[in-house]
Measured scan of single mutants.
Amino acid sequence: HHGSGALAALHADGPHAGLPVTRSDARVLIFNDWEERKRSEPWLRLDMSDKAIFRRYPHLR
């Protein structure tokens, strides 16, 4: 199991509170979210491209 239990660094406060600090933090969040959702949506594709990251977390651009 590759990303399970990996912890992402999140901004503690300010405008980005609760959001990932780096792209690799964002990838951890996206992976964990996908892993949760694919139980009920097995067709869901995992997209951890930069484009997917920016779409979801525009502050990382």
Rank of each mutant, 00 (worst) to 15 (best):
residue 33 D to P: 01
residue 56 R to A: 15
residue 33 D to S: 06
residue 61 R to H: 07
residue 51 K to G: 08
residue 22 T to W: 13
residue 57 Y to W: 15
residue 8 A to L: 07
residue 28 V to Y: 06
residue 4 S to H: 11
residue 11 H to S: 03
residue 37 R to Q: 12
residue 42 P to Q: 05
residue 10 L to P: 07
residue 43 W to M: 08
residue 21 V to N: 04
residue 2 H to N: 09
residue 53 I to S: 00
residue 32 N to W: 13
residue 11 H to M: 03
residue 14 G to K: 03
residue 43 W to T: 08
residue 55 R to S: 11
residue 19 L to Q: 05
residue 30 I to K: 01
residue 61 R to C: 10
residue 43 W to R: 08
residue 40 S to G: 10
residue 7 L to S: 14
residue 8 A to M: 05
residue 13 D to N: 08
residue 29 L to H: 03
residue 17 A to P: 03
residue 8 A to I: 09
residue 31 F to L: 07
residue 29 L to E: 03
residue 36 E to L: 13
residue 34 W to F: 08
residue 7 L to E: 09
residue 12 A to G: 07
residue 26 A to K: 00
residue 61 R to T: 07
residue 23 R to P: 12
residue 13 D to E: 09
residue 37 R to E: 02
residue 19 L to I: 02
residue 20 P to R: 01
residue 28 V to W: 09
residue 13 D to G: 08
residue 16 H to R: 05
residue 8 A to T: 05
residue 22 T to F: 03
residue 24 S to F: 14
residue 58 P to Y: 15
residue 30 I to N: 01
residue 42 P to G: 05
residue 29 L to R: 03
residue 11 H to P: 03
residue 18 G to M: 09
residue 12 A to M: 11
residue 31 F to V: 04
residue 41 E to W: 06
residue 6 A to D: 09
residue 4 S to E: 11
residue 50 D to K: 06
residue 1 H to W: 14
residue 53 I to V: 13
residue 51 K to Q: 11
residue 14 G to H: 04
residue 14 G to P: 05
residue 32 N to G: 06
residue 16 H to M: 09
residue 9 A to I: 13
residue 14 G to L: 03
residue 25 D to E: 07
residue 57 Y to L: 04
residue 1 H to V: 12
residue 10 L to K: 05
residue 4 S to N: 11
residue 15 P to F: 05
residue 25 D to Q: 05
residue 37 R to I: 12
residue 52 A to E: 15
residue 10 L to N: 15
residue 31 F to H: 06
residue 34 W to A: 00
residue 60 L to D: 00
residue 36 E to M: 12
residue 35 E to I: 15
residue 27 R to L: 07
residue 7 L to Y: 10
residue 5 G to P: 13
residue 11 H to Q: 03
residue 54 F to Y: 12
residue 15 P to Y: 05
residue 37 R to H: 06
residue 6 A to V: 10
residue 11 H to A: 04
residue 18 G to K: 05
residue 17 A to G: 04
residue 6 A to W: 13
residue 44 L to D: 02
residue 36 E to N: 09
residue 14 G to S: 04
residue 47 D to N: 11
residue 16 H to L: 14
residue 35 E to V: 15
residue 20 P to C: 03
residue 22 T to D: 04
residue 10 L to E: 03
residue 34 W to H: 04
residue 14 G to R: 04
residue 39 R to C: 13
residue 3 G to E: 09
residue 10 L to V: 09
residue 17 A to F: 09
residue 50 D to M: 07
residue 51 K to S: 11
residue 56 R to S: 06
residue 30 I to V: 05
residue 34 W to I: 01
residue 21 V to S: 09
residue 5 G to H: 12
residue 28 V to F: 06
residue 31 F to W: 08
residue 27 R to W: 04
residue 53 I to M: 04
residue 32 N to Q: 13
residue 3 G to F: 12
residue 41 E to Q: 08
residue 61 R to K: 11
residue 21 V to W: 04
residue 56 R to E: 08
residue 50 D to W: 15
residue 9 A to L: 11
residue 35 E to C: 15
residue 44 L to R: 06
residue 27 R to D: 01
residue 13 D to W: 10
residue 6 A to E: 09
residue 49 S to W: 02
residue 1 H to M: 10
residue 6 A to N: 12
residue 36 E to V: 11
residue 12 A to F: 09
residue 59 H to S: 02
residue 27 R to H: 03
residue 28 V to G: 04
residue 29 L to M: 08
residue 32 N to P: 00
residue 15 P to I: 07
residue 53 I to E: 00
residue 48 M to K: 01
residue 28 V to R: 11
residue 16 H to G: 03
residue 33 D to T: 05
residue 13 D to M: 08
residue 55 R to I: 11
residue 44 L to C: 06
residue 46 L to E: 01
residue 13 D to F: 08
residue 37 R to C: 05
residue 50 D to H: 07
residue 55 R to Q: 13
residue 52 A to P: 00
residue 29 L to K: 02
residue 54 F to Q: 04
residue 30 I to F: 13
residue 5 G to L: 13
residue 17 A to E: 10
residue 3 G to I: 14
residue 39 R to M: 09
residue 26 A to R: 15
residue 44 L to V: 07
residue 20 P to M: 01
residue 33 D to N: 06
residue 10 L to F: 05
residue 54 F to C: 06
residue 13 D to R: 06
residue 5 G to R: 15
residue 12 A to T: 12
residue 19 L to P: 02
residue 56 R to V: 09
residue 46 L to T: 00
residue 54 F to T: 07
residue 24 S to H: 14
residue 13 D to T: 10
residue 59 H to G: 01
residue 9 A to Q: 13
residue 33 D to W: 07
residue 23 R to W: 09
residue 9 A to V: 13
residue 45 R to F: 07
residue 58 P to F: 01
residue 56 R to I: 10
residue 15 P to A: 12
residue 48 M to I: 12
residue 46 L to N: 01
residue 9 A to W: 09
residue 32 N to M: 13
residue 51 K to M: 09
residue 18 G to T: 03
residue 46 L to C: 05
residue 9 A to C: 15
residue 38 K to H: 13
residue 50 D to I: 11
residue 33 D to K: 05
residue 56 R to T: 15
residue 61 R to V: 08
residue 26 A to S: 05
residue 61 R to F: 10
residue 23 R to H: 07
residue 40 S to D: 11
residue 33 D to E: 14
residue 21 V to A: 12
residue 40 S to M: 09
residue 36 E to A: 11
residue 48 M to S: 02
residue 4 S to G: 10
residue 30 I to C: 02
residue 21 V to E: 06
residue 60 L to M: 02
residue 47 D to V: 03
residue 55 R to A: 13
residue 38 K to S: 09
residue 21 V to T: 05
residue 24 S to V: 09
residue 17 A to W: 05
residue 54 F to K: 03
residue 29 L to Y: 02
residue 20 P to F: 15
residue 9 A to F: 14
residue 45 R to K: 14
residue 3 G to P: 10
residue 26 A to E: 01
residue 26 A to L: 01
residue 59 H to A: 01
residue 56 R to M: 09
residue 29 L to W: 02
residue 43 W to Q: 08
residue 56 R to Q: 08
residue 28 V to K: 11
residue 27 R to K: 10
residue 55 R to T: 15
residue 31 F to I: 06
residue 36 E to F: 12
residue 8 A to N: 04
residue 5 G to C: 14
residue 34 W to E: 01
residue 6 A to G: 10
residue 29 L to S: 02
residue 9 A to H: 14
residue 28 V to L: 12
residue 26 A to W: 05
residue 37 R to S: 05
residue 10 L to Q: 14
residue 39 R to D: 12
residue 30 I to A: 01
residue 34 W to M: 01
residue 34 W to N: 01
residue 61 R to N: 08
residue 19 L to H: 03
residue 12 A to Q: 12
residue 39 R to T: 10
residue 33 D to R: 08
residue 24 S to G: 15
residue 22 T to M: 03
residue 28 V to D: 02
residue 52 A to N: 08
residue 23 R to E: 06
residue 51 K to I: 12
residue 1 H to I: 15
residue 15 P to Q: 06
residue 18 G to L: 06
residue 36 E to R: 13
residue 57 Y to A: 00
residue 39 R to S: 11
residue 28 V to Q: 09
residue 41 E to R: 05
residue 23 R to S: 08
residue 29 L to C: 06
residue 53 I to G: 02
residue 10 L to Y: 09
residue 46 L to P: 03
residue 40 S to C: 14
residue 7 L to N: 09
residue 1 H to L: 10
residue 47 D to F: 03
residue 46 L to I: 04
residue 38 K to T: 08
residue 46 L to W: 01
residue 58 P to A: 03
residue 55 R to Y: 10
residue 33 D to M: 07
residue 56 R to C: 06
residue 22 T to Y: 03
residue 29 L to P: 00
residue 43 W to E: 11
residue 22 T to A: 06
residue 33 D to A: 09
residue 45 R to Q: 11
residue 46 L to Y: 15
residue 50 D to G: 02
residue 42 P to R: 09
residue 45 R to E: 12
residue 2 H to Y: 11
residue 11 H to E: 05
residue 24 S to A: 14
residue 52 A to Q: 06
residue 60 L to T: 00
residue 21 V to I: 14
residue 57 Y to N: 01
residue 46 L to V: 06
residue 17 A to T: 07
residue 60 L to W: 00
residue 32 N to I: 12
residue 4 S to L: 12
residue 35 E to M: 15
residue 18 G to Y: 04
residue 43 W to G: 10
residue 45 R to N: 07
residue 50 D to R: 06
residue 57 Y to T: 01
residue 8 A to R: 04
residue 44 L to I: 07
residue 43 W to K: 08
residue 37 R to V: 02
residue 10 L to H: 04
residue 52 A to R: 02
residue 43 W to A: 10
residue 38 K to N: 08
residue 33 D to H: 06
residue 8 A to W: 05
residue 55 R to K: 11
residue 7 L to H: 10
residue 13 D to C: 12
residue 18 G to Q: 07
residue 2 H to T: 12
residue 48 M to G: 01
residue 7 L to W: 07
residue 37 R to T: 03
residue 26 A to H: 00
residue 43 W to V: 03
residue 18 G to C: 05
